[in-house]
Design a protein around this nucleic acid. Structure first.
Lengths: 349, 349
DNA sequence: CTGAAAGCGCTTACAG
DNA sequence: CTGAAAGCGCTTACAG
């Protein structure tokens, strides 16, 4: 397929290539309306569309944004970041070049230099979960960090506001009347998010005049199996000491708590209220009852990152932008049962 | 940052640009080893790396592959397709330009022409689930269809072998000794996969000398809530007519069956065996017990598609390539309980 | 108001 | 064995 070039429309319109270029980029108003009109018509008639490669070579702008991520494509709930970023790019006529490094540092550094070499106009560096990391070498100035932030600052960054997420989850339970509220924490690598959510939990308890009970702060691997075990641990406490509400580090843990409850005849939310975190697709909403949870604003963060990468939005490079984690209310929270009224699981099974 | 150009290394090495180009692309062996050596050394010293834009303009190959998808980035379990495709591209020094059309036909057709205009070397067109569709207009010849196929053929395509997936799921139950095997079908838009899995189920029953009982073929929306309802429907049958094994259209339905079982004191797999489909990340393996399921070969399909897009693999354009759906055995299948030995759910609750 | 010319950074026939 | 020249398809000062 031989494509029509700018020179072809110039010839067909009886003007110079320069003129065609000028009117098609509506760069200068000095061209007569007459000529403009004719050039545009001819260009349209012959189906001309500029060769972006040639244009890029000359202008040094490529209309592409590089997006390098560690495993973002294989993490189910992080795809929305990608979608959000891609959407903004598209809305602004930009193309995104994606490279998933699968977490390998060598692949990552290759990817960065390849992308830089390809003259991307901007870059976003995405993580699959909220992390603080040393900035990879070779990243161009202005690279936007998505769902992570460089430990020494220097780049724009957006991360979820996990502290306020922890608050909002706890507050939801407090507002429903709960006083004995457990936090099932992440016992794994202690990501920033775990610390932040814990602080949010503790602060809301304090503000509500609730003395935190250390027995109610338990740890679990971030899996449903872990959640089941944590629930068992919590319900092994004396009845009066048991929680009536649980805030789980994530939805998978919450799912385990739900399963454990079903197996022990504990009703949700009548006997036990629970709030998760992540609003994981096809999970949180599928639980029975559907899970009240704090959502990770993946789409919004992806959009934000691309907006600053495109220069559409100002930001500072010292402190990361904190993105709100809204609660999504479903049906797993209710008022607390009267103390001791929950059926004893050891009897129920 | 002013980059070093080919002309710079030519000057530094005291040769012509042509020579530099020739040795760096090791195009011709006619250059003296001496010169080659020197050029390479100088190029390395000055940190030269060719400008891909300039090269593309001249050679008309860009080293990029366009990947257009409907919502692939937002579907949790389809991200692996993207990852597989991206990985093959990277292994072969290609870049993938991703555009997610979110299912909008206008965005899709814009995306296609933008990508074609950007001179991508190849294209893959991905769907978020197994579909047969009219080929979108403007797709270049050789575009690879991923997880979908054009209704009139004419393009290479790869889809999961859902017929054999349906067989393998059913066979798993038959092999465990089950004779009363239900199929909880997708009641929604009847995608190809539903039909194919049903045929696999029916054929295996027939080959095993089992008369299909229409009461055991029920329909459900593809959600956990649907699965619970389908389970209730199945267990409303007379005890002797109830299934001892269930094959669910997907893992979400299977999850609903599991929940329903927990609530009614039905043990899995002692009282009821269950096989899902999809091997959905963070779901199938998180169920209690972990779900035996048929996995959708997303990564393999993604890799396959990119391999043919890059010309690394031959294929025909008439019939789609069928990708195996292997069973992943976890803990939800066991031998059937003696008929009638399952506790009656109506008593259990 | 418009055109001729140079140049973006490569590759590749064509000479020698 | 190597160099000079043209050209990929645009854009943009510079003239006129």
């Amino acid at each position: 397929m031989t494509r029509v070039r700018l020179a072809d429309v110039a010839k067909a319109a009886g003007v110079s290539p320069a003129t065609v270029s000028l009117v098609l980029n509506d760069a200068e108003s000095r061209i007569s309306d007459d000529t403009k009109e004719r050039v545009r018509r001819v260009a349209h008639e012959v189906g001309y569309s500029p060769n972006p490669i040639a244009r890029s070579l000359r202008t040094r702008v490529t209309g592409t944004i590089g997006l390098v991520s560690d495993r973002i494509a294989t993490t189910p709930f992080a795809g929305r970041m990608l979608a959000g970023a891609q959407e903004v790019a598209r809305e602004n006529g930009r193309l995104v070049i994606l490279v998933d490094t699968d977490g390998h540092p060598e692949i990552e550094s290759d990817a960065i230099s390849t992308l830089v070499n390809h003259r991307v106009d901007g870059m976003v560096y995405a993580s699959m979960y909220h992390r603080v990391i040393p900035a990879p070498a070779g990243l161009p100035a202005g690279t936007v960090f998505l769902d992570c932030r460089p430990e020494d600052g220097g780049y724009p960054a957006v991360v979820p506001d996990d502290y306020s997420g922890g608050r909002v989850a706890t507050q939801e339970l407090v507002d429903a009347g709960h006083r004995r509220i457990a936090y099932i924490d992440n016992d794994e690598d202690r990501p920033v998010a775990a610390e932040l959510r814990l602080r949010g939990y503790l602060d809301v308890l304090a503000e509500s005049g609730i003395d935190p009970d250390p027995a109610l702060h338990v740890f679990s691997p971030t899996s449903a199996a872990g959640g089941q075990q944590a629930a068992a641990e919590l319900f092994a406490l004396e009845p009066a000491q048991r929680p009536t509400g649980v805030f789980a580090y994530n939805d998978r843990i919450a799912a385990g708590v739900v399963t454990w409850a079903h197996r022990h005849g504990i009703r949700i939310p009548e006997d036990l209220s629970i709030v998760g975190y992540d609003d994981q697709q096809l999970v949180a909403s599928e639980l029975d009852p559907p899970l009240t949870t704090v959502s990770l604003p993946h789409t919004a963060m992806g959009r934000w990152a691309m907006e600053v990468a495109l220069g559409l939005r100002e930001t500072d490079t010292e402190s990361p932008h904190l993105m709100d984690c809204p609660i999504v209310r479903r049906a797993s929270v209710g008022p607390p049962a009267h103390l001791g009224s929950a059926r004893d699981p050891r009897v129920a099974d």
